[in-house]
Design a protein around this nucleic acid. Sequence first.
DNA 1: ACCATTGCCTACCAAGTGGTAGAAATAGAG
DNA 2: CTCTATTTCTACCACTTGGTAGGCAATGGT
Lengths: 193, 193
Amino acid sequence: MDTSVRILKRATLAFGEFGYDATSLDDLARALDIRKQSILYHYPSKELLLEACVRQAIADLSVALDEAIRKSSYGWERIESIVKRVFRLANNRPELLGLLREVTRLGPPILTNAVEGMRPLLDGATVWLIEEMENGRVRRSDPELLVLSAYSTIMGAATEVKLFEALGEESTIRHVAMRRKELLRFLKIALIP
Amino acid sequence: MDTSVRILKRATLAFGEFGYDATSLDDLARALDIRKQSILYHYPSKELLLEACVRQAIADLSVALDEAIRKSSYGWERIESIVKRVFRLANNRPELLGLLREVTRLGPPILTNAVEGMRPLLDGATVWLIEEMENGRVRRSDPELLVLSAYSTIMGAATEVKLFEALGEESTIRHVAMRRKELLRFLKIALIP
DNA sequence: ACCATTGCCTACCAAGTGGTAGAAATAGAG
DNA sequence: CTCTATTTCTACCACTTGGTAGGCAATGGT
């Protein structure tokens, strides 16, 4: 595999799981069995590496969501499809959502970039919600607020696996499925008229 | 004020806002206008300082929640009271919730400690919920799951201010109030039969 | 007056940080 | 084969990190 891609994947893993500050280029190089300077050849600085990771993560997320959107039609069906897709993503590639959370934690300037990258996604969701509300398929409320609430709710539900484990809740597939089901029930009651 | 208390407060602020790794003892000492070794006199290591901060944060949180609980009675009234209290806390002392989120990010071993400290709180909430469900004041569902979902939802809504700011949403008091209202509406629909 | 304890300090250190300079290897094109 | 560009490497650096060793002043009990 291309070295720069290997670096990107590993960095996304590390940044998403342990955080940006806690991940040193030396660590990364060791894990990849290359020299640190090879990393700095492909990505001139640690911050630029992070940027690249975030860009890729958002791209991957967009692809996944587009898939979920195309596979479904309207109203509740589509919401359900999206939530399920996000949970699947959280299961298969937890580092992606972890990285996004990390970015909101780090704040500007990297967050500003990331937000620009996500805006089409969020705007699309907002526009769609407005339409659905007008057609009476979704309960009326402030659509932007709703998108952001949904974002942080799904994010929380999908990424706080560590917390569940620490609480002694086993985090088997079945448990994740239960939490997903519970969240869906919640969302359905709250969103659908 | 007692030096050790000053250190604790400042460390909680810094850990909660910028994260554990991003906060150096030198930074802290500079901000407090004391020498780093004075910090290490009161708290023998950075990790023990973090532990102390977390302990105190949980204690403060417990006090705030107890207050909210005592002030309210049952059913929806109490849930509303708690949510409002948490939002007030997120407004007055955002570093508290920030620190707790940071702890879940850091994972074990510190998370294990923190979870032990929070267990009475969570268990209390679970027991109360079971009672409310049996009395028909709260919609039936898995109570433990519900507590954790509520935790991550409220946490997300209360702490993701940075994200909202980056999105260009002004984060005025009015906007926070709106988000609180929205969350309450959401919870009411989802929880109350 | 004495001494032990407390609290804060100066001086220092080994390890690790992100990053620079530039050599050596590799590979494709003519 | 040779030239050139790409890629990976060794060697190094200035700086920051958490933490140790030990001194020095204040305090208060005996």
